[in-house]
């Protein structure tokens, strides 16, 4: 199956929950509604035509231009994306990408983290990957078995890979700036 066939199969099954991505993209992708992500992932893993048994990685991207002069030309509205890279063992070499587009803050309230349902029940790999996304980009994954920070200290404040992150002044008595 070509990426276009995969997109067609997903659209046939899930309708408007799946939006086809840029046709010229190097990594073919679709954008998925956060609410139906687990269904889509289970379908991609279990459908005999698709069989994406492996989740290569989960990454979070913060789309924000902090410079107000450049913001108009940036070409995107401020938002977050969570990206899932999949590949298949049954059909070697087949790759696919899912994207979930999120607001930077849940309901537009600063400080409330946006949420994506966890796919740790579909692929075990997602456990630590989602913890890392939570740690560094600040996305909550409801349904995650162990939703703690993975790299930074447990009492760390903020999510450092957000573009508007500000360094702490001091941490446990050590000056940071």
């Amino acid at each position: 199956m070509t990426p276009a066939d995969i997109t067609a199969a997903l659209q046939e099954r899930f309708g408007a929950a799946v939006t086809p991505g840029l046709a010229t993209a190097l990594d073919p992708f679709v954008t998925v509604e956060p609410g139906r992500l687990v269904e889509v992932c289970t379908f991609l893993r279990d459908d005999p035509r698709l069989r994406f048994e492996m989740l290569n990685d989960v990454s979070g991207v913060d789309y924000l231009e902090t410079d107000p002069k450049k913001a108009a030309k940036a070409g995107f509205d401020p938002h977050l994306e969570v990206v899932y890279h999949l590949s298949s063992f049954t059909h070697p070499g087949r790759r696919f990408t899912l994207k979930v587009v999120l607001p930077r803050w849940k309901d537009g309230t600063p400080g409330e983290l946006p949420e994506v349902p966890s796919v740790a029940g579909v692929w075990r790999t997602a456990d630590w990957q989602e913890r890392e996304v939570y740690d560094l980009v600040g996305v909550r994954f409801p349904g995650h078995p162990d939703p703690r920070r993975i790299l930074l200290a447990d009492d760390w404040e903020g999510h450092p890979l957000r573009k508007d992150y500000e360094f702490p002044l001091e941490y446990h008595g050590v000056r940071c700036r």
């Binding site: 450092p160 050590v174 000056r175 940071c176």
Partner: peptide, 11 residues
């Protein structure tokens, strides 16, 4: 380096 102490002399 958001996570790095800027010199061990601070510690």
């Amino acid at each position: 380096g958001y996570n790095v102490a800027k010199g061990v002399d601070l510690v």
